[in-house]
Design a protein around this nucleic acid. Structure first.
Lengths: 120, 120
DNA sequence: CGGCAAGGTTACCAAAAGTATACTAGTTGC
DNA sequence: GCAACTAGTATACTTTTGGTAACCTTGCCG
């Protein structure tokens, strides 16, 4: 991420250390950036939450979206799926220690958008 | 973001303070989350950069994307467009104080993905 | 038995996002 | 005149998202 541009003796310009595909910022965004992804993780921060409760909490998102986001987060090891031996059977999702490390930047983002973005 | 689910005396569940469309996290993602958006802002953090230099620095993105992202960031007041009276005429983009407030969370994200995400 | 809750899956569709390539118009240096 | 620079636009296309709605299985309650 120290990309710069240099000009050679003939006036031609070349990028040095150009930032190709996977800058850290881009990679992070791929993991946390999708619609609802941050919200889903955020809602798990205090306690495990069951699938249907999540869909109720995150009003605008469909079951399909929640399901996709949960799989996505699980595939990155940020949350865990846990089957509850209740009747009827239930499933809860809980944040992992690895997932908790992401809360810091989600919280920064939250603070930033609360303080800087127009209320709107 | 304190959404929870309550059960009434008949066993029916209702979401309290459900998180509809614009949670702070979602809104922040809309501003910083698009592909290349974070990278573009990041590359402006130290000094103004000219258009074509940006496209060279960010190897994977087309001019159209850079142009769109710059307009997007400008529309949110995070960067400024500045015409340089050089020959040939040039344009430089510089980060605004408002834009600088976003660097904190971009940096958190960068640190997070560097330390937590598989090198890949 | 009918209906409901749980935890999803499936099919389908629309719209957004991103890519690739070409092109403008003006300037400068070789 | 040719090439390369400036800062973008225009066009066309493909891919990825996101969203709706219906459906499924198992088990419980009345």
């Amino acid at each position: 991420m120290k990309a710069r541009v240099e000009t050679d003796e003939l006036g031609r310009k070349t990028a040095i250390e150009a930032c190709a595909e996977p800058c850290a910022i881009e990679r992070g965004m791929r993991v946390l950036g999708g619609k609802w992804t941050g919200s889903v993780l955020w809602h798990l921060k205090d306690e495990p939450v069951r699938f249907n409760d999540l869909t109720r909490m995150i009003g605008g998102a469909s079951k399909k979206m929640i399901s996709e986001r949960l799989k996505h987060l699980e595939s990155h090891g940020l949350i865990e799926r846990e089957v509850l031996e209740t009747r009827p059977l239930g499933v809860a999702y809980r944040i992992t220690p690895r997932g908790e490390t992401a809360l810091r930047c989600l919280d920064e983002l939250r603070q930033w958008s609360e303080s800087v973005l127009p209320q709107h």
